[in-house]
Amino acid sequence: MAAAAPDEHKPARRWHIAVFLAPAVLVYTAIMIIPLFSTLVQSLFGPEGGQRVFVGLRNFQTLFGDPRWAASFWNALWNNTWFFIIHMLVQNPVGVLLAAILSNPSLRLRGFYRTAIFVPTILSFVIVGFVWKLILSPLWGVAPNMLDAIGLKHLFAPWLGQEGAALTTLALVSVWQFVGIPMMLIYAALLSIPDEVIEAAEIDGVTGAKQFFKIQLPLILPTIGIISILTFVGNFNAFDLIYVSQGAQAGPNGATDILGTLLYRTFFGFQLQQGDPNMGAAIATMMFLIILVGVSIYLFGIQSRMRRYQF
């Protein structure tokens, strides 16, 4: 017994922790962390005399200093921002509204609505882009005919071909596709509010819309925060929808060019334009930094100040 006692006090080496972590760490390192850092490194290199050599921040100087590169970059960044604004103004409020309606116990066919609204989210971008392109086509689309049927044909325009309307149209298509996600998350958050809180509010005379804004909304704010940050990351990484519906040139006249399509054209080249992996990496690095800054502002500036309620 005496011999066994010291063993028990010796801290056991917990090998199992390392063993269990290893697969995730290895896979994540191999397919996320190493490529991320090699992209960051690649942005500091450039061709010189047929060789790829270290050029410091030259690619970034070109990106911001050359009027053409700078114009494309700021245009893409603004378009990205507008894409995000539309999502924040339309997707998330509509998601909250749908969730509030769905959580109303007197609504019938709830399961059906929930599924129907969520289905577009699981569709491929390619299908969504193609289907909407057809719907909105001035030649074969159902949109002009449907507007015609209710006497509003004059409201129809070839939106995807108009500089002013194309990006907003695509943003709304994206909203249509993804509105199911905020709806589901907020629906779950609303369901998790205990009945006692609602009942207490009702006893105090807080009902209807007032109840929603005074009681439920504050309780789901953390969820809305998470949704906003997911939207932010998703929008600034967006590429597929624009590429599928407008092509890599992101027309008309660059009106739908976002950072993702600019990166694609620069990195891989387009038609007669040769690809430039180093400039592409510089743009990818800027995208990474923009998202990093956005997420940091949220994490340190907003989330840490948010009040949480425990039941």
């Binding site: 053409r68 071909g161 500089e163 040139q249 027309g251 008309p252 006249n253 660059g254 387009f270 038609q271 007669l272 334009q273 430039d276």
Partner: peptide, 27 residues
């Protein structure tokens, strides 16, 4: 636009696409 003139950035062929389509659409 194909021989020699599309070697640089901005690419002449791609610029031709862009501006010819702008002219056609009236932009």
């Amino acid at each position: 636009t194909y021989q020699i003139l599309s070697r640089g950035t901005p690419n002449l062929e791609n610029d031709n696409w862009l501006h010819a389509s702008n002219v056609l659409s009236g932009a």
